[in-house]
Amino acid sequence: MSGTSFDLPLFVAVMGVAAVASAYLVIRARDLVYASVALAVLGSLTASILALLGLGIVAAYIVLVYVGAAVMFIIITISMLGPTGMEEQEAMRGVIVASPRRFRAYTGLWAEALRPLRSTRFGQRSARRLGGPQQVPPGFSADIHRSGRHNR
């Protein structure tokens, strides 16, 4: 069966399924050392797919430089670092981060955008809503602000 046009897509598909499985193992392995080893396997499978597609030089370069140096550096570093404490993995965190409002709150883009407006009442209210650092502008006492809200 060698040399037929059926071989190449079959091998690429097998390597692709293995690459997806190793990528899943990278983010799901409890031990970071095993995750790093899975990353090395993923890099090797990526190189093999590229070699099957005809990019042999790039594949050899990936195996030598990326897997052989960079990923091995990660593995050695994590092995020497030891256990790095409790790790929280929240399944819904991705959804929370992906929602635009929470994403803006996380990255602080709104806080940066509102920095020139901090001295105004609108800027104080926005910073408080986003949970960012608040500053009382000169001549604008917090007591006055609180009493103003209380009167309303």
């Binding site: 899943y24 990278v26 983010i27 995750a35 993995q89 399944a91 965190r93 992906a98």
Partner: peptide
Amino acid sequence: IGSYGLASSNNLLRQLLSVEV
């Protein structure tokens, strides 16, 4: 898969591995 791993973990090393994925 890498994007999900980047968003769902709070460990910096795991986030680095997800970026590599």
